[in-house]
Design a protein around this nucleic acid. Structure first.
Lengths: 81, 81
DNA sequence: TTGTAGACTAACGTCGACA
DNA sequence: CTGTCGACGTTAGTCTACA
């Protein structure tokens, strides 16, 4: 079977991360620092070119000051639209 | 550099998936069929040996008849304990 | 500040098989 | 029914660097 890629979901995630990051007035480097991730990697996620694993998702949600459930809910609503 | 692996989170996910699957009286093969994933892969996730990406997580939540937010919340509560 | 590129390592996700 | 294994192709995730 084809690799499990859902581009619309990935893009919903991308938009939510970027929006929330800017809401908190953080740079990509700030965010990367908060969750100990590579800054260029954050960039790739925000343009919908990378699909993070659950560990990275969880760390991103914490860094964005959201519970995991709240973060997932936001991504989900963007996806459903 | 350091692998972005949070074993406790992975195990919380593992336990939740297995519990919810059994709640629905599904076999791993049933679940695999519902979300079009490899059956052995489901098994590895349920024993905490694999860390799925967001696409796989989303498909699992749907297959387990949970919203993405609800699913994330359940994993999160198991993780926090 | 951000997007992207190349090169690299580790891990995902699939498949077939077997206890 | 489930866990595991080996093999495989693909991609996550890191790092350096540049416009």
């Amino acid at each position: 079977m084809r690799p499990s890629r859902n581009q619309k979901l990935i893009e919903a995630l991308a938009v939510e991360i970027k929006a929330r990051r800017q809401e908190l007035a953080l740079t990509q480097e700030d965010l990367a620092g908060r969750c100990d991730l590579d800054r260029p990697f954050i960039s790739l996620i925000e343009v919908g070119k990378k699909q993070p694993t659950i560990s990275v998702l969880y760390r991103l949600s914490s860094a964005l000051e959201l519970s995991f459930a709240e973060f997932a809910g936001r991504v989900e609503s963007r996806y459903s639209q």
